[in-house]
């Protein structure tokens, strides 16, 4: 797995912001003169929402029909209904929640340790030229090692216990958070820093009021990359060796040819990934209320 490169901080924000705002910016593909400039907002959005569900529903129907007629053997891909029943059984027996809790705890622990360190080191090298000279070169070198390549070494160090999994996840989330925090602090507008200095801000006040808030958009981009890396590493680590967790659940099910449970596990990973991404987006909205992406159309003149 490759560590992500540094993106422009604004890009994901734009993506999330445009979702609800297309109809407010009719510049692209604007209707010809004479037609109504702003169509009613709800209608096209509802229609496009329904359209986007059309293909998944069709696929699901095809899948169900193929399974029911026996074209698709249950050994290859069980029917949607039986996947649903497998999920329900696991939920009722409590196994589902136990494995889910174990996996989530691993992910969060790894994220807190690796992400916290990445953030701290990023702040350090971003704010101090000395720390940058001392550390950044080394970190950039280590970054090129894919974290899954460490698996053999990690097994030698930690065995196959919890530490090994948490360590791998921590390594996986460290670099995206480090890179984007460092980049974020460094790319804060120099003219704002000069202004703040001329108003007597220095040291911690300058950091708290200018450098950190200016870096937050980039840090949040790093967090979203880190979340992606977190799930990927978790899946690999749990497939490797585990006594509990979603990975253990699916690996065991594979050995007993319980394809429906394998599918439940796969879908769970997808849902967890989606949930984490939504939480990150929520965090963006909470932390960046000032960002133009989250504001109503600016008024140009009083």
């Amino acid at each position: 797995m490759k560590s992500p490169t540094i993106p422009l901080p604004v890009r994901p924000l734009r993506i999330s912001a445009n979702r609800g705002r297309d109809s407010e910016h009719p510049t692209e593909g604007a209707p010809p003169a004479g037609t109504e400039r702003r169509p009613p907002r709800a209608a096209p959005r509802l229609a496009s929402g329904a359209t986007s569900w059309l293909v998944p529903i069709l696929l699901l129907l095809t899948w169900e029909v193929a399974s029911a007629t026996g074209i698709l053997p249950a050994r290859i891909l069980p029917a949607p209904g039986s996947v649903w029943r497998a999920a329900a059984d696991l939920a009722i027996s409590g196994d589902l929640w136990r494995h889910l809790a174990v996996s989530a705890a691993r992910a969060v622990t790894g994220l807190l340790i690796g992400g916290g360190l990445g953030f701290a080191f990023g702040i350090l090298t971003g704010a101090s030229r000395f720390a940058e000279g001392l550390l950044d070169g080394t970190v950039q070198m280590l970054r090129t090692i894919p974290n899954l390549a460490l698996i053999p070494l990690v097994i030698v160090w930690f065995g196959i216990g919890e530490e090994a999994k948490v360590f791998l996840i921590a390594v996986g989330v460290f670099f995206p958070l480090y890179l984007n925090t460092y980049h974020g602090v460094r790319s804060v507008d120099q003219s704002l820093i000069e202004m703040a200095r001329s108003y007597g801000l220095g040291g911690t006040a300058l950091f708290r009021q200018v450098l950190l808030p200016g870096a937050i958009p980039s840090i949040l981009v790093g967090l979203r990359f880190a979340l992606g890396s977190m799930w990927l590493t978790l899946i690999a680590a749990e497939a490797l060796a585990a006594e509990s967790g979603i990975g253990f659940m699916t690996t065991t099910a594979r050995e007993f040819m319980q394809t429906d449970v394998v599918l439940v596990g796969t879908i769970l990973y997808a849902l967890l990934g989606k949930l984490a991404d939504s939480l990150a987006k929520l965090l963006e909205r909470r932390l960046l209320p000032w960002h133009t992406a989250y504001q109503p159309t600016p008024t140009t003149r009083p």
């Binding site: 003219s191 704002l192 000069e194 001329s198």
Partner: peptide, 19 residues
């Protein structure tokens, strides 16, 4: 930096966007 004895206005407003 001259500090409180003088204030400087720049060509651009240089407001902190997060405040």
């Amino acid at each position: 930096v001259v500090g409180n004895a003088a204030r400087l206005m720049f060509q651009d407003a240089r407001l902190l966007p997060w405040k």
